[in-house]
Design a protein around this nucleic acid. Sequence first.
DNA 1: AACATCTTTACAAAATCTTTATACAACACG
DNA 2: CGTGTTGTATAAAGATTTTGTAAAGATGTT
Lengths: 225, 225
Amino acid sequence: MSKAEILIIDDEPQIRKLLAINLESNGYKVLQASTGKEGIILSASHPPDLILLDIGLPDKNGHEVLKELRSWYNKAIIILSVQDNETDIISSLDNGATDYLTKPFRIGELLARIRAAIRRNNTDENKTTATFSDLKIDFTARTVSKSNTVLKLTSTEYNLLSLFARNEGRVLTHQFILKEIWGIAYQTETQYLRVFVGTLRKKIEDNPNQSKHIITASGVGYRFI
Amino acid sequence: MSKAEILIIDDEPQIRKLLAINLESNGYKVLQASTGKEGIILSASHPPDLILLDIGLPDKNGHEVLKELRSWYNKAIIILSVQDNETDIISSLDNGATDYLTKPFRIGELLARIRAAIRRNNTDENKTTATFSDLKIDFTARTVSKSNTVLKLTSTEYNLLSLFARNEGRVLTHQFILKEIWGIAYQTETQYLRVFVGTLRKKIEDNPNQSKHIITASGVGYRFI
DNA sequence: AACATCTTTACAAAATCTTTATACAACACG
DNA sequence: CGTGTTGTATAAAGATTTTGTAAAGATGTT
């Protein structure tokens, strides 16, 4: 249905290509950036599910890129590096990297580490599914069913519902939701949110006029139950 | 903050000792097991914050131990192995391992990976709530429940109640409340306060005529209990 | 091109906030 | 005791803000 998105930040085109081919053939959607700056802009305007970051970039020091990303981006960041340097590894992990792999890496291992990182990220307690009365969300397959029929959701709709489901019962502010789904650059675009909450309600609620799952907290945000 | 507890499951005493010394000198509390069986029993009776599991154990295959642990244990498990075997790494990660390190490993890197794993685990919500007889306020979820049903409060009503709750038992002057909720320019608008205290009482009190939670201090302000 | 999806605009509907009006209670004072 | 004053409570009308929805335009994908 909808694919997990991975952003590659690496200056070497042949590495990017190798990664992209392997990731795409494993069902991921791939975004690419050749510089740290480009990577930051891309992820700010559309946060991916995971970032592969080469630590040896030409424009910025990879460590700085990592720090800058971590100031708002809270999903997985896996560091790739030609350096098998312990100081580098330690500082990367302590600056919030999810994992650190040394080039040349084995592609099978990388894919497994990506799966592990995404699995951890997408679930609160390693849960792969969540059920809310007639609604069932499968986080690994990225599908949603209502009364045992699979719903047709767009990628953004799924991301939004998934965010709601992972924060059941909690009021999520407009700002927070926009930051998580659209990126830090979209924090003020509350109208997007209204439109997408509208389409989601049409799809998941029995009676969209009287929403049972998505509760609006006027002036603040939304709450999912 | 108490010490994080780490369980080492490894059959080689000298490795256990090396690890234990390093971990303890870094502020962790260390538990040890020399077999898979022993490790499972130990972690079941007192779940540690992280498990270091040697995949090459004498009694059970390490992969089986991992699977068994993962059926109920959802914190971090880092695999240690003499094998730099890709199949092994992939299956470990896919079976729920948090990380995989090949012996001989660098102790600094191991410590950094342990820190990263524990950090990720602790991001789970430390939710703060306050209870006043039948009334429960969840500050992280931004919700208020009365007898286990969530109340529908407007944003201002919630802010007011939250202010009261954070200053339980203390008389808050009109001025102070107005300044906190509406801003410094509204210090004289005491009528707002009467209206909102009124609506709040209707929602949180069993008998609004005989207010149990919000007590008026005539001429001064209000007090919450 | 055909299609799906996202973004933007416009307007109606609903919720919330502000203001006004009125009633009541406590109290001091002649 | 009656009267005026002060402070509080409540309802309800009016104003404003926020939200919901449809639909057109833009963008991207197959």
